[in-house]
Amino acid sequence: MIMFSGDLDKAMAGLIIANGAAAMGDEVTMFFTFWGLNILRKAQKIKVRKSFMEKMFGFMMPRGADKLGLSKMNMGGMGTLMMKGIMRKKRVSSLPELIESAQDLGVKFIACTMSMDVMGIKPEELIDGVEFAGVATYLGEADEANVNLFI
């Protein structure tokens, strides 16, 4: 499945499907590209050499799964906070928990190196256990799969 979006709600949908599929005994590969890369960023700031533009990109994009906002009704972050509160109350797993669970279940995370280069995201800025590859790897995996999603 391709994770293109960096919106909290869409990322959650993708990770819930990934966890479910892994629990059905399926092999799951998630290919993170463009805004979706932000889902994999570490929460802490990592010291890496970057150009001015790369620094700006890094600064303006959410740093990690816990910083993403909703695609709708974000309301400057208020909507996201309320939604997270409701989800916690209803015991829905948080995005970081879903990521951890997916990794435990053997879901493969692949980061698109071209998008990483464009957005100035370095490998050490992403969470552990992520592989790096390109479109051919994604297509190779997708060719063997019955379910293929673009989120």
Binding site: N19, M24, L105
Partner: peptide, 15 residues
């Protein structure tokens, strides 16, 4: 009990 989707199937799969 109390687990939301996909919690139950994930737990079941692990066991």
């Amino acid at each position: 009990r109390g687990l939301q989707c996909p919690g139950p199937v994930v737990e079941l799969f692990k066991v």
